[in-house]
């Protein structure tokens, strides 16, 4: 899966990072998903999933880090970066491990990623607020993580099916 030549891979990474950043921006623009705290569709995760399956985990991490720092600086500030980073690292770590087992489809991997992303965010929230009681809100976030993760996973899977016969690098 790893591209054999380096230069095209870097170009593809840059392209995917730009796409992920745009998706982050679109997500900020959708009001329905910003009015409920902590609930996001996570459209940018489509790009991360495609990077994970089409390239590999290292590229997905790189693209995600670029996206988080740029989107954080542009839209939400330093605290936003902290929240995103905790969620993204847990989420991507879980997705890489689950993908490696080979037992789960893209959708299952995406669902786990969505839930772990929210888990990371609530961990940071409990540290920032200074009480573990914010976990009372966690069931809502699990549910949204599962639903959004499933939607994103199915979308990513559809895209990956169409990409199968195409070469990015």
């Amino acid at each position: 899966m790893t591209p054999s030549r380096n230069k095209p891979a870097i170009a593809v990474c840059a392209l995917l990072a730009a796409l992920a950043l745009i998706f982050s921006y679109i997500e900020v623009l959708i009001p329905a998903f910003t009015s409920i705290p902590g609930i996001k569709l996570g459209i940018a995760n489509i790009v991360i999933l495609i990077a994970l399956y089409y390239l590999d985990g290292r590229y997905a991490l790189l693209i995600n880090l670029v996206r988080i720092f740029l989107a954080g600086l542009l839209f939400s500030g330093v605290f936003g970066i902290l929240y995103s980073l905790a969620g993204a690292l847990l989420s991507l770590g879980t997705m890489v491990l689950l993908k490696r087992t080979g037992r789960f489809s893209v959708t299952g991997v995406s669902i786990a990623g969505g839930v772990m992303h929210n888990f990371g965010q609530i961990l940071v929230a409990s540290v920032v607020v200074g009480t573990i009681k914010v976990f009372a809100y966690f069931p809502v976030l699990i549910l949204s993580g599962v639903v959004c993760g499933a939607v994103i996973g199915i979308l990513a899977q559809l895209i990956l099916l169409r990409l199968r016969n195409t070469s990015l690098s």
């Binding site: 786990a112 888990f119 966690f138």
Partner: peptide
């Protein structure tokens, strides 16, 4: 598209998450 393993995984995530949430949020509130 969705495997049986995915459904099991989701069920496990929800169960563990709910237990964790229940335990952590009520543990120290006595």
């Amino acid at each position: 598209m969705i495997k049986k393993a995915d459904i099991v995984l989701t069920a496990v995530l929800i169960t563990v998450g709910l237990l964790l949430s229940f335990f952590l949020s009520f543990h120290d509130s006595t």
